[in-house]
Amino acid sequence: MLFAAGILVILAVAVLVLEPIVRGSRASLERTNDEMSEAEATRRVRLLALRDAEYDYQMGKLDEADYRSLRAELAAEALAAMEAVEAEKGGGPNSRVSPAPDALEAEIAAARAGLRDGTTCGACGHGNPAGSRFCASCGQALHLSGSTSA
């Protein structure tokens, strides 16, 4: 009885461990597409730094002159990061054209508005037309009130 139980334990372990090699099932070894790339991560960090600076300014930690110069720097870095993301995605010829400086402000403003009315996807950040129930990019269900979805 005990002997049989022991054999059973060893067999179970052997089957579990050797099955992938015998049957050739494989584990993925590469980063998947839906994981954030390094360029996207950088872009995200830059955008957030910009937002952080705005809060620091609003909370009185930065004075206006410092805030303006810092924001100019951060905006430039954020733009560079956004370009890198565009380049990475290997889009059309437009991807090389650097967006105007206020494009960033527009992106933040648009994203914020999208979040409020629930059209910006909480999972992938894609902006969807008003009234969408699912994200056109990733299929995620869209919340009606984005501001409470965080």
């Binding site: 954030m36 996207e40 872009r43 995200r44 955008l47 957030l48 937002r51 952080d52 705005e54 809060y55 992106e107 933040i108 994203a111 914020r112 999208g114 979040l115 910006t120 996807c121 909480g122 999972a123 992938c124 950040g125 894609h126 902006g127 984005g146 501001s147 965080a150």
Partner: peptide, 10 residues
Amino acid sequence: RPPASRPASD
């Protein structure tokens, strides 16, 4: 949240 979806964060 990826960046575009959480711009309101500080």
